[in-house]
Design a protein around this nucleic acid. Sequence first.
DNA 1: TATGAATGAGCTTTCATTCAT
DNA 2: CATGAATGAAAGCTCATTCAT
Lengths: 222, 222, 222, 222
Amino acid sequence: MSDPKNDNDTKRSKKREKIMQSALKVFSRKGYSPAALDEVAREASIAKGTLYLYFQDKEDLFSGTILYVMDKLAERMQKNISDTMDPIETMKTLAYEELDFFAKNSEFFGLIHTVMSGNLLGNHRSLLKTINERRFELIEYLKRLITEAKKTGQIKSDIETVDIVYAFIGMIESSIDQMHFIDGTCTAHDRSQSDIKMDIGRKVDTILCILLDGVRTDRRRN
Amino acid sequence: MSDPKNDNDTKRSKKREKIMQSALKVFSRKGYSPAALDEVAREASIAKGTLYLYFQDKEDLFSGTILYVMDKLAERMQKNISDTMDPIETMKTLAYEELDFFAKNSEFFGLIHTVMSGNLLGNHRSLLKTINERRFELIEYLKRLITEAKKTGQIKSDIETVDIVYAFIGMIESSIDQMHFIDGTCTAHDRSQSDIKMDIGRKVDTILCILLDGVRTDRRRN
Amino acid sequence: MSDPKNDNDTKRSKKREKIMQSALKVFSRKGYSPAALDEVAREASIAKGTLYLYFQDKEDLFSGTILYVMDKLAERMQKNISDTMDPIETMKTLAYEELDFFAKNSEFFGLIHTVMSGNLLGNHRSLLKTINERRFELIEYLKRLITEAKKTGQIKSDIETVDIVYAFIGMIESSIDQMHFIDGTCTAHDRSQSDIKMDIGRKVDTILCILLDGVRTDRRRN
Amino acid sequence: MSDPKNDNDTKRSKKREKIMQSALKVFSRKGYSPAALDEVAREASIAKGTLYLYFQDKEDLFSGTILYVMDKLAERMQKNISDTMDPIETMKTLAYEELDFFAKNSEFFGLIHTVMSGNLLGNHRSLLKTINERRFELIEYLKRLITEAKKTGQIKSDIETVDIVYAFIGMIESSIDQMHFIDGTCTAHDRSQSDIKMDIGRKVDTILCILLDGVRTDRRRN
DNA sequence: TATGAATGAGCTTTCATTCAT
DNA sequence: CATGAATGAAAGCTCATTCAT
């Protein structure tokens, strides 16, 4: 019953993944240029040459790794979101998933900055393009959510949709930064999982609370 | 009348600055590792060896350059802020200054990500420490502003001060991102200065508007 | 009736030959070092590892291939020459066969130079030795022909036999070069077979004409 | 009085030459691909990186070295030839210079075969083109000599000029081969200079003797 | 002080060879 | 016998750093 062709494909795929996980660690620790493929190979417990059986070159490994992680994030987001959800509930879920993802994949944090920093050689261009396309898609999706919320009267119409989107994204990313830089040191490794989960739930609530109602004292309530 | 000691010091200082400005350009274009000191020297119209008369090594040059630019930003912020100002007005000014600074020094944008990305060799640690100290100071300062605003009743007490601070910072940084990545391409070079200035003013207003009052439709007003 | 042992030997021999033909193509295109065994294997439609079942290593494959081709040339020469032939007629035949062979196996042309160039690792020595032995044999054979022709009075005695031999060989090799480098480009691929055959006949005639009678105007004839 | 600019240029030029001489040795011993720049550097008593201050890359070093040697040969030929010379005397001189050159620069012998073998990667093309141009020039020059000799009645008109040219070149190259491969081993190192010089003179005479009058017994003389 | 030629460690990449299947 | 994934030595090349001038 076993299909040897498929078996091989699976094995190859698993190994590719193993390599990308190792690459993720090394690229996260060192950034792109200073990361040595020697180290990636050692981390993956394979020979240096083997890398080249799975990836064309260093850049291909880098791109592959980035996209692999981003796919995992996108997948998780899509799994937890349905079209029937309330826009604001959807935003809450998105925020939660992203925060949770970065909490659990803190290695990925540095990589994002590496990508954003633009220290990308010529051929990285295609990666950058892909990343921007994804970012653009996310922004467009958020715009649609906000627009819908405006229609249903949940959100004010006198603030530009795009500004709301960027405010929302900024608040999420700031929370991720906060998680990673605590007391001036890069941590977030030494707390219990439940602590983090609670934290994230609270964080998301706070973000939406501020986004929706602001921080100004509500004088009218009195 | 002229003090030869001071003259020399001034000359040396000017040259250091020239080098850092050249370094800023190159590091911005290439990132840390791929930046070649050859290119910095060429840009500064000096010999490569001369760099080592002003900086200990590449990392020192990088740190120096980063801190030099951050000092310029801090200086500008301090110049435009006085202790007698209203907390919220102060926050507005801070936001404006930061956005304006990054608009005018767009090269610096990538560098910040480079620093954050952690492509930092051992000795970069001290730079990272300094940067985090500055960040910590800024955060503490913002905390004091928020606390004061809470005391004067301008800001609700039931949201944690630190959360407000991070929301604020996130929204500013997101705006900076937005300025630099427009339509998926890194631009912000091709608009008139007045356009940008207006934009920034509007941006800051929107950020504070959202932060203070939120985006939710105000049902109570009716 | 079939002898399984012999059948296997034949099969093995055929495969060896197939491999050498593929190797000939690749070595001709690339030379020794830059030729990749991957490519040889692909060309021969076998797995890379299989090469090592037929040849000890790359050098063995190279030597084997060279000698295989040289054997084919020697075989052809021997087939067309008999002991009863006139020495000069024999030389004509040798020249014709060699020119014809290189015209038909132009890939082999570069290989000869590769061998001569000495890009030969340690173990190539044995190949070089074999080739020199063959060359030596050819030279000795030609010496005998010339000596015989001297005896029969066809050739002057006052020119050293060995000098005549080298002159003859040089003229042949030069003609081969000429065939391969025409107008500064390496061609000899784009002419009809009959054109080439005629050419070769004429070439051989010219070579022997010059070798025998020289190019000087014959004043005595008048 | 000393011009520092010129001094530097001279120094640089001398070093370039030193490197090319070292490269000549290594490329001659190993051929192109197997030659390690490490070894060239060691031979020239410089660091590997220094090579790259004088040559763009390995191919540039190779091309430079080849052309450098060919220039030296061409220079010598031109110095010893004048327009007023008899065509046949000129050919004699050319032959002598070439044989003498290869006798004195026996390292260059292997290199020529390396170049001819065509194991030349993409960018070698420009070298190959240059070499073919030079070869073409030499051939054209010889054609003019032969044509002139035909006009003055020294050389028969019924043999094609180009065939005479190739016969002449082939005989010279064959003599060079003969010098380098004696008794199946590559030698020519272990004979006195005067022996060689005499040898070369005799060689050239023999070549021209054969080329002009052939080897056939002159029956008409009797 | 300023120079820039020289250095050599360290990187990416290739590929002949092996060996478990 | 045949396979081809895995290996790791070896090579070309870059560039931060030094130092004689």
